[in-house]
Design a protein around this nucleic acid. Sequence first.
DNA 1: AAGCTAGTTCCAAATAATGAAACATGGTTT
DNA 2: AAACCATGTTTCATTATTTGGAACTAGCTT
Lengths: 262, 262
Amino acid sequence: MSVAKNSDGTVGKALDLLDKVASVGRPVRFSELLLDSEHPKATLYRLLQTLTNQQMLSYNSDSQQYSMGVRLVRLAHVAWRQSSLAPIARPLIDQLSLKVGETVHLGQLDHGQVLYVDKRNPALPLAMFSDAGKIGPGYCTGIGKAMLAHLPDEQRDRFVMQQSFHRYTANTLVTAEELIAELAEIREQQVAFDREEHEAHIICIAAPILSAKKRVLGGLSITTSTTRYSLKELEGFKTDLLETAHKIGQVAESWHFPETNN
Amino acid sequence: MSVAKNSDGTVGKALDLLDKVASVGRPVRFSELLLDSEHPKATLYRLLQTLTNQQMLSYNSDSQQYSMGVRLVRLAHVAWRQSSLAPIARPLIDQLSLKVGETVHLGQLDHGQVLYVDKRNPALPLAMFSDAGKIGPGYCTGIGKAMLAHLPDEQRDRFVMQQSFHRYTANTLVTAEELIAELAEIREQQVAFDREEHEAHIICIAAPILSAKKRVLGGLSITTSTTRYSLKELEGFKTDLLETAHKIGQVAESWHFPETNN
DNA sequence: AAGCTAGTTCCAAATAATGAAACATGGTTT
DNA sequence: AAACCATGTTTCATTATTTGGAACTAGCTT
């Protein structure tokens, strides 16, 4: 949970605070934020005022609570359109999810975690974890492992070290060693599996989305539950999955997808 | 287009810059931003570096262009969940769109404009940020007029003055006077209509979502095209629309929806 | 090679952020 | 009702960051 020391002056501090409010995930009071803040009272207070002024946070004076502001939703819409794979990949994902009849997720790497940027569910939802903007762990999701596996060594090692290795289920990999071994295997097989590592009964097969130069742009997965498919059967989707992931990579390339992201 | 003078120091300047990049809506170069920036070269440069460091922007060193960063998508997910009507209203909107068989929009007021936070199209599948986060004009959309009409006088006048009054179609209201007259009528009728004012052939009927104290929380609309319904026929949806809007208001109330937004 | 454009770095001066402490405010206990 | 306490807000001298003119670099173009 330790947060990287920040070097970007006041703006960095303000954005860190924004993250903190986001990570609480519910309206939160001044005193609660103060509890584990590095800043003294007055500083925290002024930062909150600034963010509220700027509509990055909204403040409910009745309950005296801060929550995330609407300005973020507006900004994120543009971000989603222009800096995520989602709009590009949309028709291809539609196609894939229709063909295989299962839920398809599209994710990108963000600080070693999976940031889901789109999801397609052909039927009605299995009650499950995800939506655009949601984040998930990198070490125990199919998309996360598929992306990590294809990163340059130096970057991969750094992100592996950053994982929190919480044991979600009996199958969760909980050490860097296990994960590194698994990543090597994933590179050979081209696809990654989530073997109920994050949630019981939920399994998936995932592939990285790569640029022509093999840079990791994102990840794609087909998710289902053990009541419908076995892991073995999931392998039957491998060809379709890889083909779609490859196509998305190509389209993204021609669309001048941003080079940098870590 | 004029931007309010900013009083929030460095953080304010950085966020203004973020808005500017967002408003361009495509990857943008340093020099292009410099053209109409109040800041000198070096200052703008450092602000961009800070934002890029913070992943609020992403920088493509090949094309030397800045675009919106992924961190925003992550933050907005939380914002959407906790500070918009959308999650609360979701089941009610599902119901309404199924019943009437037409597209339903949910919006909130943001700086006198409509911020769409959800959309339900009974025919096509849903995807979150593609539509949520979009903004639309306040003076020529059904939701916008419905919300403006029910604002306290002082606030309403302020927002009316802020409208840009661009003539999208022959039916667009293009003066403050016309709009104010229309708003008065909307208050009487309870619902607002978009009579192809924003887009040719697109019409809608809209209602405000109000708290118990009649504060405007958001707006709800049923949108269709002139090829399927006439304006007269749209009135047939009035009862269902008002009922759903009312229900959403009640649920939001009991859910302690944030008091402040302007 | 000189000239040009776009982007980057430097550093003294200007400005904004900091934080200890004092001050409000509203609720609770004696 | 007074004393107490928890929470939130303001003040102001000190400190640190931001600022921006100018110098510099890198990559093109004439």
